[in-house]
Design a protein around this nucleic acid. Structure first.
Lengths: 233, 233
DNA sequence: GCGCTGCATTGATCTCGATCAAGGAAATGG
DNA sequence: CCATTTCCTTGATCGAGATCAATGCAGCGC
């Protein structure tokens, strides 16, 4: 568990706030509102403005609420990630904890105003946004043009890259999200996700244990199933 | 048709390069490679790095090429827009002209390096990226959770906002993209798009003339069909 | 004008994944 | 340790949209 001072320290490092004692760092740290969420808890945003989030510890999902009970998970985030909660437009957005987590919240407009004097911070943010944009565009391809089995392969490979630990030729994944979360992230239903897991299990491509542990035995098979452009990185 | 000097001038204005004679502006304008594309032509990117595009004139589509002949249109852009072409990752991206168009191309990394000394430019870019991210997230919701008729309504409303001209209570749209482009943008087939247009036409919600002209007669009906969060802006 | 080509519309059928329904396994609380 | 609840898995059926196929219509060169 991170202490509060730790929290600010890792954040400062993440956005390249170099000098520990600079007045800018002082002001920005005062701006950040720390929050502690328990599993399943949603971040209640009192204002509708865009927020900048630094996730110190744990994992979260960023959810867009469309009409009725139809939610779409836009992205998952893990410890160390910095990301934006967009201002609500045609949908409303919320951040929801997957297990215990710890984060820092900044109103985006004020943060940007403060950061104007430090191009390093702005560059860092641009990099993070470019990353979010890339992921979102890949998600759009998956949601628009991929079959269920391709989407599952894309999901597992993406998670392997972000939170997997290699063990020999296999990759061990301890997924913090439920089948429902996976389904809502991939534009599928929980039943379809479950069936695809069963197919991969039967094919010995993956192995599962309990609800959260997944071992990827055949990553190259998953890559072949992901429907990526042949020969791409 | 924009002249070349015009092109740079509108770009400079768009990224908030205030002083006309500043050395920074000089250097950035030297970096920009102007390009002229005829209808249907694709921008061939000789390097795989991310590019910054300023579209002076005309409209373009940003296409992600997935496996086989499955393309997903990530976004449409119109005159005056500034946007990123991501570096190719699991997919390759290309920009394709819808009709004649004129644009400026910048290698993103060099541009950012140059812009580091001017926080105004960086702030402007962050704003544009936040916009692209918002649109991409809305697209993800549409692709993941919406029916064909909702997607068409979302598409028409989005186009109305960006390139529509009001005429009384109606909105006139001169769509630069084909039915195939609409389908590839919405994760549907051209037949489904056509059928949805027919349904809207029969309901007198829209009126079409030729291949590109669409008149939205009942915008509130479209909003009701778009599956937006009730009461959202 | 006429034929050609590419795009749009309409109809018939099929399929993948959603939906409906029932068990089964794992975490949670007494 | 058992009861309760929640989540996951599996099966049966259904339907929205894809696919296959044919026709209509606009633009273009001759």
């Amino acid at each position: 568990m991170a202490t509060l001072s730790n929290t600010f320290e890792t954040f400062a490092h993440s956005v390249k706030l170099a000098e520990p004692a600079s007045p800018l760092r002082q002001r920005i740290c005062e701006l950040g509102r720390p929050a502690h969420l328990t599993g399943g808890a949603s971040l209640e945003l009192e204002d509708a403005r865009a927020q900048l989030v630094y996730l110190t510890h744990g994992s979260t999902k960023l959810v867009a609420h469309a009409s009725e009970a139809r939610d779409q998970i836009i992205a998952f985030h893990f410890a160390g990630d910095t990301y934006w909660i967009p201002a609500s437009d045609n949908y409303s957005y919320s951040v929801c904890a997957l297990g215990e987590c710890e984060l820092l919240l900044f109103p985006a407009d004020i943060f940007l105003k403060m950061a104007e004097s430090d191009p390093q911070i702005l560059r860092g943010l641009i990099g993070q946004m470019a990353d979010a944009l890339r992921r979102c565009r890949e998600k759009a391809v998956a949601l628009g043009r991929k079959t269920a089995s391709e989407r599952i392969a894309v999901f597992l490979l993406g998670m392997a890259e972000r939170i997997g630990t290699a063990k020999g030729t296999s990759v061990i994944l301890d997924l913090p999200m439920s089948r429902r979360d996976i389904a809502e992230s991939l534009g599928l239903t929980i039943e379809t996700v479950s069936r695809q897991f069963t197919i991969l299990r039967d094919a010995k491509t993956i192995e599962t244990s309990g609800r959260s542990l997944v071992i990827l035995h055949d990553v190259s098979q998953l890559r072949a199933q992901a429907g990526y452009l042949a020969g791409a990185a």
